[in-house]
Simulated assay, not measured.
Amino acid sequence: MRTSMPGHRAFVPTTTDRLVKAAMTTAGRLPAGLIQLIAGRPRHVDGQTLDPHFQAGVKVMSLLSKGEYEDMPVEEARLTLDRSAYTVSGDPIPLAVVRDIVLPLAGDDPGSADLPARVYSLVETDEPQPTLIYFHGGGWTLGSIESHDATCRYIARMGGVKVISVDYRLAPEFKFPTPVNDVLAAFRYVRDNAEEVGVDPTRIAVGGDSAGANLAAVVCQQTRDAGETMPAFQLLFVPATNMSARTQSYETFREGYFLTKANMDWYEENYIRSDDDRTDPRASPLLATDFSGLPPAHVATGGFDPLRDEGEAYARKMAEAGVAVSLRRHSTMVHPFVNAVGATPLARAALSEAVGALRMGLAY
């Protein structure tokens, strides 16, 4: 396991970025009633009321936006998402360990590659720790270690858990199933080299948000099907689970709530190679034929999210198969609330709740 990090994409904020972040962080500490004055008339949709912090945030992001991701060159879209995540990340959360490494995954398979990763820990210790391997969201196209740095710091600090954030390869340069193969290789490496990596081999969870949650779910299915030691727990935030069909929440929240239907169409077009991929459980884990024997899970969805219904359907499928699952709809939030730890107390509360589920699942 090397400590250099070739190919890692760092985000360097501008002065304007810093000013926007300071404003969003300040707003995130203000009472909801005061923020509602800025956000405007409350939005009531599908029996839910949008959190005023998110309503104001969507409004600000819209004013600052240079366009939709699908209308930009991919590299510009990646920079735009990193910038958006930075502005809502809040003050840096101090930890004893924040270390960039490289997972040595390149082998005889010409399609394999070493992957950058970042390790987070509340303590510097040689003792094996409970560990969450985290896969960032971004539609298999965008996102990075940097865009999800605040999320991983929050989980590590509040949970007292080691977090290993993996920079898997992205589409369209690396289409399905390369990201799946990357995250499977990352999990297997940590599991099989637990002593070297400093993790408790009996307490390794996988997790992620959106596309990252999709990949975490697939890791659990694939390792079960191969008869291998699976993750001990899966932490799935706003998971994408089905590319073969659209649910009602896609229509209800198709635009105006950060993630749009057009965004998802673009992400999937970048990721998949053909329509046959849409029905492959490695791309659409909801289409698996067997959900029994999977690791315990916590699934958290957002009320104002096109992916809400398919995420909840995945949780129900696992529960019906006898898997221990806690499903939590955060009815006032948009996709992806896990990144907004600096912008609203509700995002912090949702992450804290998930950390509690993780601790219960790993029994520490």
Rank of each mutant, 00 (worst) to 15 (best):
G7V: 01
R9F: 01
T25N: 14
L30Q: 12
G33H: 11
G33Q: 13
Q36S: 09
Q36E: 10
L37W: 06
A39D: 08
V58F: 07
G67P: 04
D71L: 00
V74R: 03
R78H: 00
D82L: 13
D82A: 15
R83V: 07
P92C: 02
P94I: 10
A106Y: 01
A113R: 03
R118H: 10
R118T: 10
R118K: 13
L122G: 11
P130T: 13
G137C: 05
I155T: 03
K162D: 08
S165Q: 11
K175C: 02
F187E: 06
V190Y: 14
R191H: 13
V199P: 11
I204F: 06
S210D: 01
A216C: 14
V219F: 03
F237E: 02
A245D: 09
S249E: 06
F253W: 12
F253N: 11
M264E: 03
D277A: 02
P281N: 02
A283I: 00
P285A: 05
A288N: 13
D290K: 10
S292M: 00
S292G: 15
A297G: 03
L307C: 04
E312W: 01
N339W: 02
V341F: 08
V341P: 13
V341H: 13
L346A: 13
L351F: 10
L351H: 11
L358I: 06
G361S: 01
